[in-house]
Design a protein around this nucleic acid. Structure first.
Lengths: 229, 229
DNA sequence: TCTTGTGATCTGTGATCACAGTTATCGTGG
DNA sequence: CCACGATAACTGTGATCACAGATCACAAGA
């Protein structure tokens, strides 16, 4: 029995349903699924090489979180958001993500601060390229925001924020397709820099203001595209 | 074709899964399910007179919202909450429900105000009885709070709040069982009265303070019971 | 040309079954 | 009396099938 201490608990293989769920979540939050796009169970199942059952479970869960919606006909699709709905989510994000950023400024440990700075630098680098990769920029932006929220040390709060991002992901898609968002990127850089500074100086209110400004200015940019009804 | 205008669209009957879901939700939020209680799919299905399939869908959705949890063995049960988790939720509730109350003070229309007052009166009546019905009091309290949040006119925000209540419902159960919470009820009445006054005078900050006070004092009462680890 | 009805097809829903992993039970051997 | 081991019962997962409702295409009729 000598080497018993070397034993590690084996990873409990997640269920197929979990993996389908994670996959769809990723697509949604990255804005790779267009609003209104239909997601028939059989198609999802076939595309991912599983039976209808796991697809069903995943879709059902996402519907429960309103990341997907069922039409009166019971067909499943990516939600089409109204302007009013988008504005409500933006207002909620200002309150919740602002609070998370303020908490992060007070509680972030050095490792978390380094992580945040790393993402901030990566975002700056990407957005200063001659031809920035929009998909990558969105991904880095998400990593930056969530590293801040994680630093607040409130897992429940982070799940709430994740759910909100899940809902606005598809809108991002609309924005990505008509890509000239270069103007906005300049603003984002400014807010991100202010955010990092506020975190370093443990200034909760400046951190809140930076996040709030980032959210509001991004929302204004999306609204100005006029794709929302 | 004379009488065609008399036709009304028939109500679309919800699925069995939806009804099981709604039923479990009600039990959870009312504190009628104890933390740690197991919920085998087959038992749920049999108890509600449906097959395993709808029970499975409902449970799966509630797990996604963390209203239920799956053990590493994949058994499903009502979550047992740690003290740290409870405190985090309380902090979040202060921010979110406080914001909702403040918005409600600014936006509530006369009908909504009447509705709120009706529930406030009902709660007062119940808590002043010689032997108040705790189950009923919890139910009225929920109706009161949500009538306020509804008055804010932000459906997404209300769903977030609902999800939080779903998570603390079972803790309420622990509190109900060792019933002498009479002290707390007196405090609740005071905060409710202040809340109604603030709504009448459209005073957002006083409304926020009243809700915040209610939440914090209720949380303190539960914590003092020492049932959380 | 436009309308109407019919059929094929696609949708999610629900039931039933088989299976693998876990837990509980009980009997046996020490 | 206690520890151990085999067996039975129970768990969620996944697959497959049947079915009702919705949708679409197309052809027959006005």
């Amino acid at each position: 029995m000598a080497g018993l201490t070397a034993l590690r608990p084996i990873e409990r293989t997640s269920t197929l349903g979990d993996r389908v769920d994670a996959h769809l979540r990723e697509l949604l939050i990255a804005g790779q699924l267009a609003p209104g796009e239909k997601l028939p169970l059989r198609s999802v199942a076939e595309a991912l090489g599983v039976s209808m059952m796991p697809a069903r479970e995943a879709v059902s869960r996402l519907v429960a979180e309103e990341a997907l919606e069922v039409l009166p006909n019971r067909a499943v699709r990516v939600p089409v958001m109204t302007l009013a709905h988008f504005r409500e989510i933006t207002r909620i994000r200002v309150v919740i993500e602002g609070y998370a950023a303020a908490e992060a400024a007070l509680r972030a440990d050095p490792a978390a601060r380094r992580e945040i700075q790393k993402h901030e630098a990566a975002f700056r680098r990407e957005s200063e390229k001659a031809e920035p990769d929009l998909i990558a920029a969105v991904s880095i932006n998400k990593a930056l925001h969530f590293s801040v929220y994680a630093a607040a040390g409130m897992p429940v709060l982070m799940q709430i924020i994740e759910r909100l991002w899940l809902q606005i992901g598809p809108i991002l898609n609309l924005d990505l397709r008509g890509s000239p968002t270069r103007l906005q990127e300049g603003q984002a850089k400014t807010f991100h820099a202010a955010l990092v500074t506020a975190l370093q100086t443990r200034d909760a209110e400046r951190a809140r203001a930076a996040i709030t400004g980032d959210i509001v200015s991004a929302a204004a940019a999306i609204e100005s595209r006029g794709v929302l009804t």
